[in-house]
Design a protein around this nucleic acid. Structure first.
Lengths: 113, 113
DNA sequence: CACTATACCTCGCCTGTCAATATATTATGC
DNA sequence: GCATAATATATTGACAGGCGAGGTATAGTG
């Protein structure tokens, strides 16, 4: 069985950037979106999510600000910077290529048969 | 830029199992195959390769034996066990599903637009 | 005789993931 | 009234896989 922690490893950044490319958002919703999109099979755990936000923000790929909700728990929103958007576009293109390579490596054509 | 160490992370096992599913093979060639298939863009580094062999063998997914070459450097060949082959088939099927999920997560449809 | 290719192996560091834990607000059911 | 669940953020410390750096050995080539 593929290990679910390692399946997304390396793609967490890109997944978050992708979510933010569609508009500012915040941790809890991004986490829920990932679960919903994958039918609950994959998830960005909270610890992963928040440490990733810190890393991306330190790299100036995203910026954060507190929401102005007047009821409910506070939300910290994240916004994609220009650099973040460029990286997202790059990573999206790379994924297309790497996906094909991994598929080839895993499924390959049978040799001599 | 996607990090090449993390792109294969989690798939290393499956890639090796895949290579062995086509017949017994050995480390050096598997490494070269991966480089060739990916046009040199991805590689299983030696340290990764050999530690992975140890792990897979400890889990009885592969078995090893020394080749009977009479010239050149000695080769340790690896053979897929039945359990290894079953796992390979499972992982191959899972990759198809996870690949679609990651694509959806990274490329998604634009919302509200 | 130096260099390259083939071939194997291990140690220890690095980094991303996550379980566990903590905190705060609001809604719902009993 | 009170427990529980859902919404929301955050940190710590442990774990595991990948790999740089280092090492060994054989054989061919200029």
């Amino acid at each position: 069985m593929l290990n679910s922690s390692d399946i997304l490893r390396g793609y967490t950044d890109t997944i978050i950037l992708s979510q933010l490319a569609r508009g500012d958002s915040y941790g809890y919703i991004i986490s829920k979106n990932v679960q919903e999109i994958t039918g609950g099979e994959l998830s960005l755990k909270e610890a992963t999510l928040y440490t990733t936000f810190r890393r991306l923000e330190a790299a100036s790929l995203i910026e954060s600000y507190w929401g102005s909700e007047e009821v409910g728990a506070r939300r910290r929103y994240y916004h994609l910077t220009d650099a973040g958007r460029r990286l997202y576009e790059e990573n999206k293109a790379e994924w297309t290529r790497y996906r094909a390579m991994i598929t080839e490596l895993i499924e390959g054509e049978e040799r001599s048969k």
